[in-house]
């Protein structure tokens, strides 16, 4: 049987997918996420503040984060439920709670029905992802969710959304995602989620080490230096460290062109090249 931890994680995943008991909605761009105050608020000072005071948000139960990068918001919400991002489904999350799956007679035929109807369009993706595993239930869950009002509602059609997410998935796997990490990092800093900040920094560091020649680097550096307050050294130190390991990076044209735009980076690069300490 599952260990207690697995049981909890599976239940969290189910909550995320099904949106059952959701009492808070997060809007981000075109998307709307049904989340749970009990899960979100204890982890983040921002959400706690928004829900505990007599502001508009606690009255309406809707928090609009459209001002923030919508991809980073999605990763953040994913993190709240899976303690990790991006979407990587190692386990099969059940669309219903474990005990319901076993006991609820009404749900079973429905599930079967769903599986049969959406099997075909997903077969290709599943095969591409991992030929050995049985068809992944994730799209199934999305499809199921699409029919229920309380699950993450997607303004576009279910099919289009699922395929889009699949593309993203592949995208993340094959690209360094440096910009994504730095934006998640900034968001975690803004909304006071320390462990997500740490996780993003770790992912950023690994990605930068593996993809030091990526053409994402200039954008990522600009994001790092503009996304958070100057005194936050987290990602800045990682960038400086990478420059020390890969001095050639600084001579790339696209990096050089950054210098006038990001004066703090220029100053620190100068110090690195002259062998001076940053602080």
């Amino acid at each position: 049987m599952d260990s207690p931890q697995n049981e909890l994680m599976s239940a969290m995943a189910t909550l995320h997918l099904g949106g059952k008991y959701s009492d808070l909605t997060i809007l981000s761009g075109t998307k709307s996420y049904a989340v749970h105050r009990a899960i979100v608020c204890p982890r983040s000072g921002f959400f706690d503040g928004a829900c505990s005071n007599q502001f508009q948000e606690s009255r309406t139960g809707v928090i609009d984060l459209s001002e923030d990068d919508d991809e980073a918001v999605e990763q953040m919400i994913h993190y709240f439920y899976y303690l990790d991002y991006p979407h990587e489904f190692e386990r099969k999350p059940s669309p219903v709670f474990r005990h319901r799956a076993a006991s609820d007679a009404r749900r079973k035929p429905l599930k079967k029905l769903d599986l049969s109807t959406i099997e075909d369009p997903q077969a290709a993706c599943c095969g591409a992802q991992s030929p050995l595993t049985p068809p992944d239930e994730q799209p199934d869950a999305y499809a199921l969710a699409g029919k229920r009002p309380r699950s993450p509602t997607i303004t576009m059609s279910a099919d289009a959304e699922s395929s889009e997410s699949e593309e993203e998935e592949e995208d993340l796997m094959e690209s360094p995602n440096l910009v994504t990490h730095s934006r998640v990092y900034a968001l975690a800093e803004k909304y006071d989620i320390p462990s997500l900040k740490l996780l993003a920094a770790q992912k950023f560091e690994v990605a930068l080490a593996c993809w030091f020649d990526s053409n994402e680097i200039p954008d990522a550096i600009e994001d790092v230096y503009h996304g958070t307050i100057d005194s936050d050294r987290g990602l800045r130190d990682i960038v400086i460290q990478a420059l020390r390991c890969q001095p050639t990076m600084a001579y790339r044209k696209d990096v050089k062109s950054l210098l006038p735009e990001v004066p703090q980076f220029a100053a620190e690069l100068w110090k690195v090249q002259n062998g001076q300490p940053i602080y």
């Binding site: 502001f55 508009q56 009255r59 928090i63 609009d64």
Partner: peptide, 9 residues
């Protein structure tokens, strides 16, 4: 005491 009209975000 009119906070409920304000957006916290």
């Amino acid at each position: 005491k009119n906070a409920s009209l304000l957006s916290f975000e």
